[in-house]
């Protein structure tokens, strides 16, 4: 059994936004989403690279992946509750 790679439901482009802007935008997107939805956040803010995974764990969601792209991070989160 291999885990099926989740398909991104929604992309939030928060590049250019400073701490805690990307997290604010992710929270808004999660609130508007259904459980099981997968949200990709684009962030060029270095603080969000640590803050968003910590928030995701605290809030009971799942960090699917955090990938360093060219000049920004792609942080993928599955809404779990």
């Amino acid at each position: 059994m291999t885990e099926i790679a989740p398909i991104t439901t929604r992309t939030v482009d928060a590049r250019g936004s400073f701490c805690p802007g990307p997290l604010m935008e992710l929270i808004r997107a999660i609130r508007e989403s259904q459980v099981g939805d997968v949200i990709a956040v684009y962030s060029s803010d270095s603080g969000s690279r640590t803050d968003i995974p910590k928030w995701v764990e605290k809030a009971g969601h799942r960090l699917v992946e955090l990938v360093a792209r060219d000049g920004y991070d792609e942080i993928v989160v599955e809404k779990r509750r």
């Binding site: 701490c19 805690p20 997290l23 604010m24 929270i27 803050d51 928030w55």
Partner: peptide, 8 residues
């Protein structure tokens, strides 16, 4: 910023 983090 402190407010936003706490609210999050």
């Amino acid at each position: 910023v402190l407010t936003a983090g706490a609210a999050a």
